[in-house]
Computed example of a mutant assay.
Amino acid sequence: MKVVCVGGGPAGLYLAILLKRQDPAHEITVHERNPEGSTYGWGVTYWRGLLDRLREHDVASARAIEEASVRWHEGVARVGDLTARQRGDEGFGIGRHRLLTLLADRARTLGVRLEYESEIGAPPADADLVVAADGVHSALRAHHAGHFGTEVTTGRNPYIWLGTTKVFDAFTFAFTETGHGWIWAYGYGYGDGHSTCVVECSPETFTGLGLDRADRGEGLALLEKLFAGVLDGHPLIGRDGASWLNFRTLTNRAWHHGNLVLLGDAAHTTHYSIGAGTTLALEDAMCLARALREHGRLPDALAAYERRRRAELLSAQSAARYSARWYENLPRYIHLPPHRMFALLGQRHSPLLPYVPPQLYYGLDKAAGRLEALRRLKRWLGPRAARTLQARSAARRG
């Protein structure tokens, strides 16, 4: 099969790796419009579950990604001068540039052709399969806009994606109160002495602080002052073109048309606050490769891919909607004691939380946790109690 993949991000590169492993005879070319080695963003996050799935599909690339990642086991929430820390799931951070380099090297090793500074505006006519992995503003998707039925919903809060030389030892949330409302940051390390730092606030705080009018240097200086408590004197860094945005949640009515199929952000986006964008893109690639392996006819494979991924994404998309909503309603939670606020921050994906008073929800969640602990204790004690009774019964019979 001749495969043309447009977009050299994680989704496109990983799909090329998987398809080449499934059948070395596939002729696969990845076209990326930017020069090799250039990328936007800083670090990306993922969790242990993704690493396990990567190992199942390609041990070599999974090992390289894990070795190049930093990891953490805790989360930290700093509200003003108060701090709460708690254990959590094992998380990982890796520089986006490093991730793309590792995937590109693996793809080349397998025989994939990579074409950089190569922009494809329309689906090539001579390919058996054309993969649109060219992001939110996909040119290939726009070529059949009427069929795909793209819808975009713009979020309320402005945010900016920055870096810093402060290396966070845990996934860090920092909330700072100003005279114009709260502003907050998410920070996580990703290697090479750097961390990602995403800053977000309400529109009222954004304009009240003058961030809508500040130039790049003035804006960074103000943010460094506001988050001095967590930055420890380290600077915030903005790449060329870094600007405040409002998150765009993208959906499509259809994901494939003829031999053209959407992958990653070209098909769907989820709010950055759940840290799942790269994971979902890589899982798209896994699902599409599996569908192409299991179905002999291309239309059946693309239909199966779309059907399966739509179903798998429901929980992540729901979590992203409620997560974004939690931050948009931050004043509802921010004045709780830090450990309680942090607990509800961890529950922000819950569809019930917006409708239950925060203190009541916290109490109910704690009670449910105690009940689950009791259930686990009963499951652990059950076999042991049974063995003890059996031993006593045997002793009496003896």
Rank of each mutant, 00 (worst) to 15 (best):
T172C: 01
P235C: 04
A64H: 13
L100R: 10
R106H: 04
E372Y: 14
W244R: 06
T196N: 00
S273V: 14
A185L: 06
L374S: 11
Y322A: 01
W72C: 01
A385I: 06
R106L: 04
G208F: 04
D23Q: 07
V167E: 15
C5G: 12
E312K: 15
R370G: 15
T270W: 01
R392Y: 12
H271R: 10
C5P: 07
T196D: 05
K378E: 13
A139C: 08
L99Y: 04
R33L: 12
E294K: 04
C5K: 03
A214I: 00
H57V: 10
L51R: 08
A320R: 06
G91E: 00
E204T: 15
V30E: 03
D365S: 15
A221R: 06
L110E: 10
G208V: 06
G219Y: 02
T101H: 02
D58F: 14
N329M: 09
H295Y: 05
G187I: 01
I183N: 05
D89C: 12
L288K: 02
H147P: 05
P351D: 06
Y327C: 05
L313E: 00
T164C: 10
T172W: 11
A385P: 06
W161C: 08
D169S: 03
L211C: 09
E283R: 15
D192S: 15
Q390K: 03
V167W: 09
R141L: 15
R33G: 07
Y272E: 00
T150L: 15
V356L: 06
L223P: 02
